[in-house]
Write a protein that binds this DNA or RNA. Structure first.
Lengths: 127, 127
DNA sequence: CGGTATCCTCAAAGATACTG
DNA sequence: CAGTATCTTTGAGGATACCG
């Protein structure tokens, strides 16, 4: 029984291999600011200042850095309007929207299990 | 119409607030090694050396550090058998298993969208 | 308003060597 | 085998100030 490798194997991206590009994607998705910024954009387009206000604690530098990385990866679009004062709107691309369910589930997990993890930590630290 | 806040509000963990503990959970889940190590343990219990072999590129130090953090958070159990040579088996707890679908979806996303992201990058870098 | 530019710190992470 | 100990580096990330 000969298997059609070309069909069943695909290019075979494997994040468990250190040199695979998909490893970088795990890193990007895993980035704390990526998760939070993309989470905000999941609710619809938003301006720079709105994102900054929504994601508490992020510095201008990290926000712009995160946004730029997301834009480079084709996950977010940036539209600047030549007005005074300037207005810049960020929005998820179709590709970026495929990330929504993933990131939202990370967020939901964090919310739901914070109590359990926190008490596990106390127990661990006590011993 | 008076709302029962105690019922509908829950403790209200919000990762978007910088001081909320759930922010740390987003960070932990987002950690590259956490994703990969937990991914391995999703297939069942595994020994230290097995995990090391599966997760390409991880150093002994980071593996033990990651494992310890997961144990502290109540996501993984560690069982050491007093044998020669020593055998130590790590396993996901029930709480840790709630993380499986989340992490697996991150991994799946990375695999599936690596080509699209990679070509977006090339396009971006070209301009 | 929407960013850059700059400086600075600290800790995450790699490499290596060694031990219970 | 399963780690720990130690040393070192580098760059992520915060704070601040300023520019188009």
């Amino acid at each position: 029984m000969i298997r059609e490798d070309a069909v069943s194997e695909e290019p075979d991206f494997d994040p468990y291999h250190p040199d695979c590009p998909s490893r970088q994607l795990v890193d990007r998705v895993g980035d704390r600011w990526t998760i939070l910024v993309t989470g905000v954009l999941s609710d619809g387009p938003a301006r720079y200042g709105e994102i900054a206000a929504s994601v508490g604690g992020i510095s201008p530098k990290m926000l712009s850095h995160t946004l730029k990385a997301l834009e480079r990866d084709g996950l977010v679009t940036r539209k600047a309007y030549a007005e005074v004062p300037p207005r810049v709107v960020y929005e998820l691309t179709d590709l970026g929207r495929t990330l929504r369910p993933v990131l939202l589930s990370v967020e939901a997990w964090a919310r739901e299990n914070a109590p359990a993890v926190l008490s596990a930590r106390e127990r661990y630290d006590a011993s």
